[in-house]
Simulated assay, not measured.
Amino acid sequence: MKIILIGYMGSGKSTIGKALGLLVNIPFVDLDSYIEEKEKQTIHDIFKTKGEVYFRKQEHFYLKELLQADGPMVLSLGGGTPCFINNEKLLFNNTSYKTVYLNVSVKELADRLLIGKASRPLISHINSLEEMQEFVGKHLFERTVFYNKSEVVIDANKDQKTILEKLVMMLF
């Protein structure tokens, strides 16, 4: 089985994905890291040198590649992945994997993202908590329609142990 973790940036997809993979002995893949490895460039540099359109096309290509790969996998996606280039059709119309939305509040996301904003191209320019909450709120409003198509929705405002216990109960 493939387990696909979906949610806004900062929702814990990579952290929870790694921990879940270890817990249930399934390989973990972070789509952004996979893209960086394949493109031999950081996401930040891809955005900077080739633009978002190029990035989204490559993201779609590598997502298809991973979804078609044999074997089980815990896969964490980028926050925008479900929203671009018909990725929605790839993600939500297949019974060979389960999609999981890690739902985190705007306030919690803004708090988390303000700390690590330098490594995230879409928010590196934001300087205050109020600006971050506005930015996150707007994007989350636009993206939630995609995220909510996930088979499983988890309240990820909780601690990692609680989230993992709930995921294991719901998925296995």
Score class of each variant (00 low, 15 high):
residue 166 K to C: 10
residue 105 S to N: 14
residue 79 G to W: 00
residue 118 A to H: 11
residue 142 E to R: 01
residue 84 F to R: 07
residue 147 Y to K: 02
residue 60 H to R: 14
residue 134 E to L: 09
residue 85 I to E: 11
residue 25 N to T: 07
residue 107 K to Y: 07
residue 65 E to S: 09
residue 88 E to P: 00
residue 39 E to F: 05
residue 145 V to E: 11
residue 137 G to Y: 08
residue 57 K to V: 05
residue 25 N to A: 12
residue 164 L to S: 06
residue 3 I to C: 07
residue 132 M to L: 07
residue 171 L to Q: 04
residue 51 G to F: 13
residue 164 L to K: 09
residue 63 L to Q: 10
residue 73 M to K: 15
residue 80 G to T: 04
residue 48 K to Y: 07
residue 96 S to N: 15
residue 54 Y to C: 07
residue 80 G to H: 06
residue 18 K to R: 15
residue 54 Y to Q: 10
residue 78 G to Q: 12
residue 52 E to P: 11
residue 80 G to N: 09
residue 88 E to T: 08
residue 142 E to I: 00
residue 128 S to F: 12
residue 55 F to A: 10
residue 125 H to I: 01
residue 156 A to D: 04
residue 19 A to F: 03
residue 172 F to S: 05
residue 141 F to R: 11
residue 73 M to N: 10
residue 120 R to S: 02
residue 61 F to Y: 14
residue 33 S to W: 03
residue 22 L to W: 07
residue 54 Y to A: 10
residue 19 A to K: 14
residue 105 S to P: 03
residue 56 R to I: 13
residue 6 I to E: 00
residue 79 G to L: 01
residue 32 D to Y: 06
residue 49 T to K: 11
residue 152 V to G: 08
residue 76 S to C: 06
residue 107 K to G: 08
residue 133 Q to N: 02
residue 107 K to L: 05
residue 169 M to L: 13
residue 118 A to T: 13
residue 155 D to W: 05
residue 93 N to Y: 15
residue 58 Q to W: 06
residue 159 D to N: 14
residue 73 M to A: 14
residue 143 R to S: 01
residue 99 T to K: 07
residue 36 E to C: 12
residue 111 D to H: 09
residue 133 Q to P: 01
residue 33 S to D: 15
